[in-house]
Every structure is written in C-alpha cells, then in structure tokens.
C-alpha cells in the first residue's frame, strides 16, 4: 500500500448541513483506519453521527445542501474530492452497504431477484440471464432455501430474517472490499440476529472484506468487531480494540453504554441502566465537553468540562484514544473501583 496507507483511511472528516436554524454538525472531525479482513464497530446513540459517517463514505448525501470536508482514502483513492460519477462507480462495487430495515430498504414493487440483478448489472456488463444466475447463487450463499424459486418473490413475501439475508446478498453480489452494515440486526428477533451475525462473520472471512458495523448495541460489537469507535455528538470520544473497550473502557459515556448493554445472565428489569439525559443537539453542542451535561463526574474536572473541548488523547490500552478531561489514572481508578463492580453486581 502506498505511503503505508491503510485500506480505508478517514482523515478529519466533517459533514455539515447548513439549515435555517443553524449548521448541523453531524460529523465533526473524525479519523480512523481499517484494513481488509478487519471489522470496525462504530457505536453511539441515534444522532451521534454514525449513520451519516457511513453515508458520507459511500458518497450518498445531497450535494446541494451538505458540506463535506476532510479525506477518505479507499484502497489508495481519495473519495471526498473525486467526481460524483467516480464515487458512484465504486458504490455497490468496491463498497457496499447493508441497511437496517430490509422491508423499507427494498423496493416493494420489484422482485428480490430483480433488485439483485439490477445491482449486479450496474457494474457488470452482462445479460440479464447471467446476472440472474449470479443472483440465485448469491441467494443460495446467504442461506436462502430454494433460491431459484425465491428469486422471483417480492420482498413482502420474505420473512424478516430472509429479507436481511437477501439484502446481504444484494450488497455482496459485486464482491465489495468494504462492507458497511448499519444496524444490521436491529429489526430482527434475537435468534435471527445471531444467525445473521454468524453469516456476516463467515462471509467477511470468505470475501476478506473490511467491515464497518454501525450499531447502538455493544452486544453486536462484541460479536463482530476487532476495533470499536464510540461516537458522541458527531465526534469520536473513545477508540480502542474491542477487548479494551470491554475490559478497560475509560470514557464515562462508554461506561454508560456498557451499563445499558443487555446481558443474558441477568433478569430483564436489571440489565438496562440507561444513561441519564438525552443526546445533544448537533446544532448547539454543549460548551466544553459535549457529554458534560450528562456526565456524573463532571464536577471532578474543575470546571474544564463546561468550558474547554477535550482533546482525543492516548489512554491506557494499546492504540487506545479517549476524549475526556479526567486524568487517565482517575478514569482507570473509577472504572475499577466504582463502575465495573456495579456492572458485574
């Protein structure tokens, strides 16, 4: 790779939407790298900027009313400054996306097969017949029984899990090197969730693609991700390997996320500890640390929390970055002495 660049490299990505009420800073200076065969989990509440990030990478945004800056390098090509048509040619081909709700994400008037064929033929100059054969193969590979028959069904004739498999088939039909999955399991019930995650895991291994999983659910991350990026208010607030995130997280927000993570070993009423307060407005971020209004430890920053925006700095783990005013030692002490015992209680 030239200049020792990673397969996917995002540098200081900003996506802003000027509106009548002010500028919505959905993504405000994001950096990360991802290699093929690896999985990055982007975690955050709704409105944290995680979905906008993925659409930004794919180049799906309204070019007339949004402002994007920074760099996105995919396999040595810079995407932000590339022409719309160049990005379009990459889309669905080099990079593909799996959406959250396959019922609304698939066109209700076209058969599943038609939609997969269409995705294939955009990037491959082949006959419909060839493309159809490819689509049937693909449906088979994602585990749809009798794919040669189901290929002519409409999305509404599929079950939820089957639809998500079809969606994955559609995304993978062109062997993309980068796959972005936006809440791929949210709309599914628990047993199906597990099947889909297994499927994605297997397929990633098979295609050797880079995978970004966008979710609010740390359970999904635990299952799939190598690295985890926690987003809050359009910015990265903690970045670490999955192991580090679960074993030695240092940001109070991440602690909150862990607390709200559903766990099989505890009764339902105890396992969800929501983070108090609501996500910040992306137009008027709180002064200082964006998380400060909801942070239990805000008073320990000596006023810094409400005045100065914290930098993303090295933390305890390897390749571990945290955006917090609290000193590293204090964060580690709080995790070990106060937070972790509560989570495990």
């Amino acid at each position: 790779m030239p200049d020792g660049q990673a397969f996917l490299e995002v540098k200081d990505l900003k996506i802003h939407f000027p509106t009548d009420d002010g500028v919505v800073r959905s993504v405000d200076g994001l950096n990360f790298k991802l290699e093929r065969g690896k999985t990055l989990g982007i975690v955050g509440e709704s409105g944290s900027g995680k979905s906008v990030t993925s659409l930004g990478i794919l180049g799906i945004y309204n070019h007339r009313n949004s402002k994007i800056s920074g760099e996105i390098w995919l396999d040595g090509k810079e995407i932000v400054s590339a022409s719309q048509d160049d990005v379009r040619k990459l889309r669905g081909n080099q990079m593909a996306m799996i959406f959250q709700d396959p019922l609304s994400a698939m066109h209700p008037y076209y058969t599943v097969g038609h939609q997969i064929v269409e995705a294939y033929r955009v990037h491959h100059n082949v006959s419909k017949k060839v493309a159809r054969k490819h689509a049937v193969d693909m449906l088979g590979r994602v585990g749809i029984p009798q794919p040669d028959r189901r290929v002519d069904d409409y999305p509404h004739q599929f079950s939820g899990g089957m639809r998500q498999r079809a969606m994955i088939a559609m995304a993978l039909v062109n062997d993309p090197h980068l796959l972005i999955a936006d809440e791929p399991t949210t709309a599914l019930d628990v047993t199906v969730q597990a099947q889909i995650m297994d499927l994605m895991h297997d397929l990633q291994a098979e295609f050797n693609s880079a995978l970004i999983v966008i979710t609010h659910d740390l359970g999904v991350v635990a299952e799939l991700a190598d690295d985890v990026l926690v987003m809050y208010g359009g910015r990265c607030i903690e970045y670490a390997s999955a192991a580090t995130i679960f074993e030695q997280p240092e940001h109070p927000y991440t602690w909150g996320l862990l607390g709200s993570m559903p766990r099989m070993d505890r009764p339902v009423q105890e396992r969800l500890v929501p983070i108090a307060g609501s996500p910040p407005s992306l137009i008027n971020l709180p002064k200082g640390c964006a998380f400060s209004p909801r942070c239990v430890y805000e008073e320990r920053t000596g006023g810094l929390g409400t005045t100065v925006v914290p930098e993303l700095t090295r933390a305890g783990g390897t390749n571990h970055l945290v955006r917090c005013h609290l000193p590293t030692e204090e964060r580690q002490r709080l995790w070990v002495e106060e937070v972790k015992p509560k989570l495990e209680a």
Partner: peptide, 29 residues
Amino acid sequence: GEDYIRTARAKGLRERDVNVKHGLRAALT
C-alpha cells in the same frame, strides 16, 4: 425520502435510474 431510494443509490445506480425506476415508479401508483 424512502429507504429503498437510499438503497438504490447505495447500489451505485445512475441518478436517472434512481429517480425514474425507483422513485417515479412508486410515486405513480
């Protein structure tokens, strides 16, 4: 504004096809 339009774009369809084959087709009903 529907999700399937975003999907169509994500597939890399030309904008014209997105508008006509996916957008107009549904709006026509």
